[in-house]
């Protein structure tokens, strides 16, 4: 009984302590971005690693999800003679919800886990310590470029995901199932509002970008430097990020579209 209370207390203290450390860590990561030639070079390199290398999975997934949406939307709407509305359904679903959410989930699995493992391995092999002893701040040299690259890549990837998804929906509903293309595009144009839908979707992607990258780099930096520690931290990145994305999506949707 006493042990259980002690364990609960210890877990609570560790949680609060990790929360404090991660808050300070986030501030340092935000402030650590350097606009010198070297700093921009590091950022561009990370943009490639985190953003460009995630493009394939984003494009392929966006295409298939758009195609499925087109197919499902058509099969439901055709019963009511409203198959022309499939364009607006595909676009609104992607821009408001699936674009930011699925992109963030895929990003956490592909780039987030890679960031955690990379930083964790650098910690385990004393590369972070050696940077410190060389007088180079790892927060500026390693963490900040990765954080900013992830944070800025995700909204761009979400926009690409939605665009490719709409194209996939068009391929299925117009080219395959025979929906009139003029109705497909004009319904979409009249239903999707820039401020209410596109901007809100982008705000979601920005929030998810911040949270996923924060979790990924912090888990890598804060892990216990052993093979088991790296494995645990990588798992935590994917699990915590996925839960945070889904939880925040509900909150943001309630605020943006639910009238809260």
């Amino acid at each position: 009984m006493v042990e259980s209370i002690q364990k609960l207390g210890r877990t609570g203290i560790e949680f609060i302590s990790a929360l404090g450390r991660s808050g300070v860590f986030l501030l340092r990561a935000i402030m650590g971005l350097s606009f010198t030639r070297k700093g921009v070079g590091l950022l561009v390199k990370q943009f490639y690693q985190v953003g460009v290398l995630s493009l394939i999975i984003i494009i392929v997934s966006g295409m298939f999800i758009g195609m499925v949406l087109g197919l499902q939307g058509y099969s439901i709407l055709v019963d009511y003679g409203s198959e022309q509305a499939v364009g607006q359904m595909v676009a609104l679903t992607l821009v408001r919800e699936l674009g930011p959410v699925v992109t963030a989930l895929l990003f956490a699995g592909r780039a987030g886990s890679a960031l955690t493992a990379e930083i964790g391995l650098m910690k385990a092999t004393e590369q972070l310590s050696s940077l410190e002893m060389m007088g180079v701040d790892p927060m500026r040299h390693i963490i900040a470029p990765r954080f900013w690259a992830g944070f800025m890549s995700l909204p761009i990837l979400a926009a690409i995901f939605s665009a490719v998804g709409i194209f996939g929906g068009m391929l299925v509903s117009v080219d395959w199932l025979g929906v009139y293309d003029g109705a497909f595009w004009s319904n979409m144009q009249s239903a999707v509002e820039f401020d209410a839908d596109v901007v809100n979707g982008m705000i979601k992607a920005v929030v998810f970008g911040l949270v996923v990258t924060w979790i990924a780099v912090f888990q890598g930096y804060d892990l216990i430097p052993t093979s088991e520690g790296i494995s645990n931290a990588t798992t935590k990145t994917v699990v915590y990020s996925s839960l945070a994305i889904l939880g925040l999506d509900f909150l943001l949707t309630a605020v943006m579209f639910g009238g809260l």
């Binding site: 004393e126 590369q127 050696s130 410190e132 002893m133 060389m134 007088g135």
Partner: peptide, 12 residues
């Protein structure tokens, strides 16, 4: 720290 060098056990 730029005035000191350190050789880590793993090489790092």
């Amino acid at each position: 720290r730029a005035k000191m060098g350190m050789l880590f056990q793993s090489g790092a």
